[in-house]
Every structure is written in structure tokens, then in C-alpha cells.
Amino acid sequence: MSIDRKTVEHVAALARLGLTGEEKTKLEAELSGILDHVAQLSKLETGKVEPLYHILPIQNVFREDAASPAGVRDDVLKHAPGARPPFFVVPNVLDE
């Protein structure tokens, strides 16, 4: 399985990773190598195998509907990289 430049760029855009040209070149090779190794999975016949979504034999874990304040807002705002209490502040979305 080989990964081309375009795929690297598409995946990086999905993951919101800004990559340099050099990083992209390296990733093309590295990801291709790893996916070659991973390709051996396709040798296994798994037509009748159920995917394993959760390793635990447990289901139906709930919490009861009771509200209680956590009181962490001011602490989180204090360490936030952009805040104007009581709000977090972000630059506007591009072109909006």
C-alpha cells in the first residue's frame, strides 16, 4: 500500500496538521512502510468474525440524572490560551 503526496495532504487537512514539504515527503515513505506491514491483515479470512467493539463483558453502564456544579470554570479560564472571562476567545472562522 503506498501513500502518495495527495493522500498525505488530504489526511493532514482532515487532522488539521500543518506539515512542511519535508515532513510530507518523510510521511509518504513512513506511512507506506507501516501500511505495507499492516497489509498482512488482509491475508486473514475474517468473513465470519464479529468485530470486537469492546473487550469488556459489560453493558448498560449509566449514571443517575442528578445535577451538581463542578466549579472548575474560573480555574480553566485562568489557564486558557485565549479567554475573556467568562468566555473563551477564538479567532473567527475563516471567511465568515
Binding site: 491483515l41 486473514l44 475474517t46 468474525v49 464479529e50 468485530p51 470486537l52 467493539y53 473487550i55
Partner: peptide, 9 residues
Amino acid sequence: LKALKVRRL
């Protein structure tokens, strides 16, 4: 999905 199946194996 393939990996989830192999995980079961």
C-alpha cells in the same frame, strides 16, 4: 473494521 475482527481472533 478488519483490525477489530482480528482483535477478536
